[in-house]
């Protein structure tokens, strides 16, 4: 608490005086903490997402994020290792994209070896005509294109498939989205190391076996969603299912396993 106070006071001396004056009374305490929290968010360049797209139907997953809202206008990182998991990750990303783009948005899909099948996008509520695919030869070009695209305010979403990215490069992407408020999803397939990036969250998606005792056949897509890093949030894991109605949670009490909370201040 004192540390936060100190940091804030460095920034705004008036706030500090106000905080010290009001800290005595317990009724003001929660209000004060909220106020300080907002200031910390401001310092950490976290912004409240726009209200129109705040509810992505993520349910409990959204609670892992600060303010219980999925951060748009930020870069998210997805890591996958095997082809089936890469497909599951793509599926989850497309499902998210469908919710983010809604009716009018457009999306850029930048990759080097794209295996995306455009007709499959319809299942996730996306008209593939609104997705522009850019197939590049080099990872370096992908990084450049993602950065340029993230600066373009008329896009809703940029999906980049690149395995290696350095911390500095991710900072550049973060600076780009702060200006434009575009959401970026990076899919890192088979990265050499899980190095730290300046991203809002790190996701890992794995496919789950369909487990219906009575019904035959393959059911809805099921994923094990692991949020292994969240800025200012609580990392956790869930099992979800994707149906036409959207994300459905599978017995959250049993599955959700709280991973240790990171201290962010």
């Amino acid at each position: 608490m004192t540390l936060i106070l100190y940091k804030c006071s460095n920034h705004k001396p008036m706030e500090r005086a106000k905080a010290i004056a009001t800290i005595g009374s317990p009724s003001n305490k929660s209000g004060l903490i909220q106020q300080l929290q907002e200031e910390v968010f401001a310092l950490q360049r976290f912004r409240k997402p726009k209200s129109e797209v705040s509810d992505l139907g993520l349910g409990p997953i959204a609670k892992a994020f600060p303010e219980s809202t999925f951060p748009t206008g930020a870069v998210h990182e997805f890591i996958s290792y095997q082809t089936p998991n890469a497909a599951a990750t793509s599926g989850f990303m497309i499902a998210l994209a469908g919710r983010l783009m809604q009716q009018h948005g457009s999306c850029l899909w930048i990759s080097t070896r794209r295996t995306l099948y455009p007709p499959s996008l319809k299942q996730y509520g996306i008209d593939a005509a609104r997705v522009i695919c850019i197939d590049l030869a080099k990872q370096k070009d992908v990084l450049w294109a993602v950065e340029e695209a993230l600066k373009c305010q008329s896009l809703t979403l940029v999906i980049g498939e690149l395995s290696e990215i350095s911390f500095n490069d991710s900072r550049r992407l973060q600076l780009a989205v702060e200006q434009s408020n575009v959401t970026g999803l990076l899919h890192r397939y088979n990265p050499r190391s899980e190095n730290t990036l300046a991203c809002a969250a790190r996701w890992k998606i794995a496919s789950l076996a369909s487990d219906h005792p009575t019904l035959p056949g393959v059911g809805f897509s099921r994923w094990h969603v692991e949020l292994s890093k969240v800025r200012n949030g609580r990392p956790s894991a869930w099992d979800i299912e994707w149906s036409k109605q959207g994300f459905q949670h599978l017995s959250p009490q049993e599955v959700a396993t709280e991973i240790q909370t990171r201290k962010t201040a």
Partner: peptide, 28 residues
Amino acid sequence: YNRQKELAELLDRIAVKVGMHTIHRYLP
């Protein structure tokens, strides 16, 4: 129009750098 224009300008920049053949958009 501005949305479209901005997007078209972005695609132009990409096309100039890496070539028009890299940009695809699909219709049913």
